[in-house]
Amino acid sequence: MGVEFTDTEFMICNAARLLEDYKTIFVGWGIPQVVAILAEKLYTPNIVQVFEFGSVGHQSRTPFLRGTMGGPTNTYRAIQWCSMNLAFSYAAAGYIDYGVLGAAQIDRYGNINSTMIGDDYNKPKVRFPGSGGGNEVASFCWKTIFVMAHEKRRFVERCDFITSPGHKMDGKTREEVGLARNSGPYRLITSKAMFDFDEETKELRLIGVLKGLTIEEVIDDMGFEPLVADDVVELEPPTQEELKLLREDIDPYGLIISKGAKFKVEI
């Protein structure tokens, strides 16, 4: 028997499984919203979502509505509506446990780029939207989870532009640049694998690969060689329960989950 799923579905399910109940999570636009809704429905019913727009503890309504993140559907029955200043300050003061972010590029210390590609800032080859609230999420949350398609060009030795901080920026630790102690990147989930950051060196470390793939196949699709844990686990593909919720309830129009390459895994 096999299960078919997209890159995006795989990443969303794996991110949702990582979260803990009775914790707070800073949720960005798009994929992170779907992660939070899936987690809330299946794994962590008491997780408290925070949006930068100024919404705390809203109760997700489905189908997920893309676009108006600060509108009625996405901020339904919140505990608090507040300012953006306050939303970020909750994170800065230590109240927010998790953050979930996407990235265009990542390096081995978990620095991410969502600003531009190229070597001349004034003449970028590609220009992205910039930090948004990503810098705050990566700077302030206790544990930041990154979600990124597994493509060679996205894993770089040094981001073309460090938009949001990882564990080490050009040789300097978070504490050395003034960021909060014991905060920062926690996991990277790609369409093929999962990574944590080595306790000592703070480098990206492979800890799981999608069932059916080898460690070599995963590393071949990276722009640098990561550390590899002694006990790399097999990552389960999305379960029928997860897929049913995603496809029938949360995102029936496939606005988010249909993106990316399609996979089939024998189970």
């Binding site: 200043n85 970020f88 800065a92 620095n111 810098n135 901080p165 003034g178």
Partner: peptide, 28 residues
């Protein structure tokens, strides 16, 4: 970033010349 611009507006609204914060640190 969204946060740093928001904090700048907070400072502007408070009549103070700058605001001290811990975002942007370590980044391009």
């Amino acid at each position: 970033s969204n946060g740093s611009i928001t904090y700048r507006l907070v400072a502007g609204a408070m009549g103070i010349p700058f605001i001290a914060a811990r975002n942007l640190l370590g980044t391009d």
